[in-house]
């Protein structure tokens, strides 16, 4: 079956956001703590635009986040913590260094 394709090889603007690839191989994700003062700096350092201010709160759009951890490193108030995804054995039994 021959695919019906546009004459000029092209893609609809913004269409990647609908099916982001990165979230599938994410190993950790940010959780924003109460120390956040909504300075918005992290929003400019996220490669995916996964950190957004909505309704006066900072939200992590997990569908976009691929877990690089830049936001947690860059936050001046250390208000962002990276939390491991469930990743098999290491998810069930957190690695030793993560034990408090």
């Amino acid at each position: 079956m021959i695919k019906d394709l546009p004459v000029v090889p092209s893609a609809k603007a913004g269409s990647m956001a609908a099916a982001p690839a990165g979230a599938a191989w994410r190993e950790q994700h940010p959780v924003i703590g109460t120390a956040c003062n909504q300075c918005l700096e992290c929003t400019l350092f996220c490669p995916e635009g996964a950190l957004v201010q909505t309704g006066g709160n900072m939200t992590v759009m997990l569908s976009l986040c691929n877990g690089c951890g830049i936001c947690a490193v860059e936050c001046r108030l250390q208000a962002i913590a990276m939390v491991r995804e469930y990743t098999g054995v290491s998810g069930v039994f957190p690695l030793r260094e993560e034990k408090v």
Binding site: I2, K3, L5, V7, P9, S10, A11, K12
Partner: peptide, 18 residues
């Protein structure tokens, strides 16, 4: 629109057919 995005085996040949 995004023009000439990376095209995989599932589309390239159809473009060439057209």
């Amino acid at each position: 629109q995004g023009i000439n995005t990376v095209t995989g085996p599932e589309f390239y040949m159809d473009y060439k057919y057209h």
